[in-house]
Nucleic acid binder design. Structure first.
Lengths: 364, 364
DNA sequence: TGGCCGAATTGAAACGTTATAAATATGAGT
DNA sequence: ACTCATATTTATAACGTTTCAATTCGGCCA
């Protein structure tokens, strides 16, 4: 315990129990969790000094910082989050708005794995907030803002003019979305290049020999619906092909409805023979419907899908698919949010992910 | 603003700004979030009284409680969690240990939906903590205990003598597990009746005409591995059937390994013709392997599976399956944990869920 | 009149941290 | 010896809540 200047070791002004028996766990708060005060009593410095030393404030002498750090480590000190939060207003929490209604298989698990991975070692915790897509999506965001429940926010299923984005921008609250918006003011996001996916899916189906293409779209309010539509349409028109974009069902329709729709459509005139499937569930429903109608994928009718679950390679017959690495999405979202929280400008925190892999006719 | 006794309306002892202009938002903290003090200044009561009144303390006059409640509502008061937490030690957080390695498709999403649903309106937040099954599963639990990061804990994939359970019991910390243990001291849990599932799966396969049964088990340290094994074995022996329980692969093996294993086994002597599949991934892998070997489920080889994802009904060919309602599991876990936190004895908080539905030969 | 009681309310002290402003000591310059 | 800038450290006041130990008050009993 070598101090630089005059360590007030002997000054009895600390009062209570810094007397003769300043043993390791002798104080009145014996078994309790160590606080800054504990360290202060052990080292002889003031609480304020200890606080500063631990945050590596350059105004504190280097020797002091080391002494304090050592004592803190020995005592197993770890700062009290409630106290820090009360004092600073920073929560060390990031909230994830999670939607329950629709799910690409395994999406939530992969996303969380990615986010918690990115936050590892930073002291940030992830708090999960339900996002009822059907209800008022603003409610939870308002609550977080008003009650200061988090330092940053992540959410998915972004709409072109997402009211949550508007609100958060107004409040200058750090956030990252999965998906873009069409606001002029920039914000941080990670997005999959759905336009390119749709275009390449169409091109693949054309190569396979499909002549009439279709794709079940997300509800049009979601930005990625526009990207998909644009990619699909521009590729289809380029090849001068027939196509149809059904209005009756969306990606969020109950899978049974999608199944029914595809079945019905198959029974009608000129059914499509090239299906772009934007998720595993859509692909499964489409494939099931085709099977139910006695058709076999690869034999006069073709699928091109997007998959997000690594496990989906087990599907038989295999489906030609590009991969969206959702774990990586989570990692990026976490990473961008941390940087946003620490002040980086939003326009530098925008990532469009390219689809992984390329469409190949299934071997099996 | 009628007070019961002597409201110190006129006493200027409050000092600062309770003078002539006690307008709604006139104080020095104008736009700021209202605190107990704000309410105190508005109603003329002391901060302590307001605090008590809001917690409906019977020592506060009824009229006062109403006055305060009204003022709080008008001002939009909402207690500061950091301050409450600092003062009381209660965090209003429950932590969910989430494992990333293995996933029944959609499990995490359903579980979280259930838990957050159960916690709705209670003020509790769900914090997600990664649980690296491969690593030290105790580390995160220790951290939560030492740093007092939560009021309660939920975790899955429970082991027969799960060290996390032991530690938490020692510390008398509230928790609920998904899955039982073999400790003598009781603790709260929700578990699926895997023994019954395995037994009924075997019975179904026998009815279909299977003669040699198999099941890929979880690693033996997990309690549900024992339940599955017991159910499987007792049913198999009852029927005097041949069986095999492979050692090479487990439920946690990479799906590709499972696929390879089943394929290899099919090529060997006396391959099993009845497969009990404990999850969607196992079922997909098994089915894929059979398909790859030119066999068709339902035609001399049979599957009986457990499914946790509602979406799995889209699988073709359909797989005879019982359903574990994971959303309900989540709801129950949340519910039990709340009750445990509020002091109910653990032995009354134990639920074994019966499998939903019964095995039927797939129509399609 | 005075003392005592119960009901209602209150001041003040915590909880553990950080930020502000002030204090102290050191060394250099005069 | 005296001032002054510099380098360190410190006391103190918050942050918003809950709770302990008073305090106030009217009425009741002696």
């Amino acid at each position: 315990m070598a101090h630089s200047r005059t360590p007030p070791d002997d000054l009895p002004r600390a009062g209570s129990n810094s007397g003769p028996n300043a043993g390791p766990n002798a104080g009145p708060n014996a078994g309790r969790r160590p606080t800054l005060r504990t360290i202060a009593e052990h080292t002889g410095f003031a609480v304020a000094t200890v606080s500063r030393a631990l945050s590596d404030d350059p105004r504190i002498a280097k020797a002091t910082r080391q002494t304090v750090a050592k004592a803190a480590a020995e005592l197993g000190y770890v700062p009290d989050r409630a106290a820090q939060r009360l004092r600073t207003g920073r929560t060390k929490v990031i909230s994830l708005l999670l939607n329950h209604d629709h799910e690409f298989l395994g999406f939530t698990n992969e996303l969380l794995t990615g986010i918690t991975g990115a936050l590892r070692g930073t002291g940030y915790a992830v708090s999960v907030i339900p996002d009822y897509v059907g209800g008022d999506r603003l409610e939870q965001v308002r609550k977080i803002l008003q009650q200061n429940l988090a330092d940053g926010l992540v959410f998915t299923r972004t709409e072109s003019f997402d009211p949550r984005v508007r609100l958060l921008l107004e409040h200058a609250f750090p956030f990252v979305t999965h998906g873009r918006t069409e606001f002029s003011q920039p914000h941080a996001f990670v997005d999959f290049d759905n336009e390119r996916f749709a275009r390449e899916a169409v091109q693949y189906l054309v190569r396979q020999g499909a002549t009439r293409l279709t794709m079940i779209l997300p509800e049009s309010r979601f930005t990625f619906a526009q990207h998909l539509r644009y990619g699909f349409l521009s590729a289809v028109r380029e090849h001068g092909l027939a196509y149809e974009l059904p209005e009756e069902v969306t990606l969020d329709s109950p899978p049974g409805d999608v199944l029914d729709y595809v079945r019905r459509r198959q029974a009608q005139d000129k059914p499509p023979d090239g299906h772009v499937c934007v998720g595993e569930v859509a692909a499964m429903a489409t494939l099931a419907a085709l099977t139910d109608c006695g058709r076999r994928a690869g034999d006069g009718v073709y699928l091109a899908a997007k998959r997000a679950s690594p496990v989906f390679e087990l599907y038989r017959p295999q489906i030609a698919a590009q991969f969206e690495d959702v774990r990586d999405v989570g990692r990026l979202l976490g990473d961008l949010l941390l940087r946003r929280i620490s002040g980086e400008p939003a326009e530098k925190l925008q990532i469009v992910q390219a689809p992984l892999g390329s469409f190949k006719p299934p071997a099996i």
